[in-house]
Nucleic acid binder design. Structure first.
Lengths: 250, 250
DNA sequence: TATTAATTTTGATTCAGATCAATCAAAACA
DNA sequence: TGTTTTGATTGATCTGAATCAAAATTAATA
């Protein structure tokens, strides 16, 4: 169940910076395979840009759904709140990714989206997106692929949570981050985590102490070097071994 | 994070049997809020019906994606295979639900779909669905909602796998089944499981012995009565208590 | 119907990860 | 700059679920 190819499309362009005064559509996830006219049409829709400070909310659970958000820069987490106040992280999101897909079903956001560093997003009014996707079939197709990819990704996480042990989970998580950084033009072996151990734990279904121990263990084996939030992958092959059988988490 | 409303739309009609010789579109999940002409158009697309025997495959992992499948009757599981041969169940599916959404992203099925009892599905060629959804906006909107609902559902499972203990998981699972039966016109408190303890365990991230013990425990407390695959819920309120805080798994 | 195979239950034991607790390091702030 | 707060690491202990094992049921098949 390896899914390398699907990411290619929208990620290959995610590091290209255009000088366009508007939202720099070309670097977004959506306008894949569109001609200039079509991009123009799309551009009229997603012109609204928005900045969120570290710690700020892009949207709250329960808020009325109007728009999807395409991340232009930064790093966010999504999480659902339980009654007792604790939160479960459902995902970490970076440049080029689309947020808010879960809200389409009920016209209400089903999770909080919180910036883990200063971030910038483009607002995409969903009604308009549907409208123009009727005119531009390739846009519709691409949008459907993105929704579907989200489902596949979630199945990967379910596999991880349902059948992997702590160290395998962390290895999978690190390799996933690594690949996403690589594809955006950053180092695949040297990066800074934006989230805390607790947030990693919440995402991976582990307690923060267990996450910390797993980090230490991988370091003891010289597979990675950990300096607080800074991670260096010394032996990516051995890290892949740690992941075990599965190739989940696209 | 309660999501009762979204299910309403397509499920309210799921128990209605029309005598139409074709695929009985009206009872499917898609034609919500369409007029007769529109249903006619849609009908031309989904006319192909298919039966799958118990144990048979609707599709295999890696197979080329052509169509979505709407379940007309029966019960199926979807599961992903790991290298080592074991399988993780990603979902159980019943009448009115749509299968194959994960395959859109790569044009390849990412899981196996296997019938747990004799089942009948309608094949919906995806290219055609996209085509006519350009003509019928309400169909497109509904399709998007269904994809989105799948994402929300998966987040619910992630929450379950990431933060609940065995008994809570089983309670959540039973209540979920219960509600889905109810909505289809069957008893909410008296039903037969179609899957084995092992399949339940795989879905819930537990070993089959743990599932069995959790059943026994709930029975000891007089909350349910278990007779092999037959389940009777004696005290749904207390079962809900067992679920704990969260309302996940829509 | 007899026989075999698959599934389920229950018990005993082990172990991975949670929990409790203390220390240490790094931000954030006055 | 010192102080407070937040986050990370590490150790000791406990516990829920996995594992190992056997018996009991149920379903499938000759």
């Amino acid at each position: 169940m390896l899914h390398n190819t699907p990411l290619r499309n929208h990620l290959d362009i995610s590091h290209i910076r255009s000088s366009c005064a508007t939202c720099s559509l070309r670097e977004l996830c959506l306008p894949v395979g569109l001609n200039d006219d079509e991009i123009q049409v799309l551009g009229d829709v997603v012109s609204h840009k928005r900045k969120i400070q570290r710690g700020g909310y892009l949207h709250h659970t329960g808020a009325k759904f109007q728009s999807l958000f395409a991340i232009r820069s930064g790093f966010l987490k999504t999480c659902v709140l339980e009654q007792d106040g604790r939160q479960q992280v459902t995902g970490f999101h970076m440049t080029g990714e689309l947020l808010g897909l879960d809200a389409i079903s009920t016209d209400t956001h089903t999770c909080d989206a919180i910036a883990l560093e200063d971030s910038e997003v483009c607002e995409i009014p969903f009604a308009k997106l549907e409208e123009i996707s009727r005119i531009i079939p390739s846009l519709m197709r691409h949008f459907h692929k993105m929704m579907s990819r989200e489902i596949v990704r979630d199945h990967g996480v379910m596999l991880l949570l349902g059948s992997m042990k702590a160290e395998e989970r962390l290895a999978t998580f690190l390799l996933n981050l690594s690949r996403r950084f690589l594809v955006r033009g950053y180092s695949e072996s040297d990066f800074n985590l934006r989230m805390t151990r607790e947030e990693i734990g919440s995402y991976l279904g582990l307690k923060l102490e267990t996450v910390s121990r797993a980090f230490s263990k991988l370091q003891d084996e010289d597979i990675i070097t950990v300096d607080n939030k800074h991670i260096r992958i010394n032996d990516i092959a051995r890290l892949r071994m740690k992941m075990g059988n599965s190739s989940c988490i696209t």
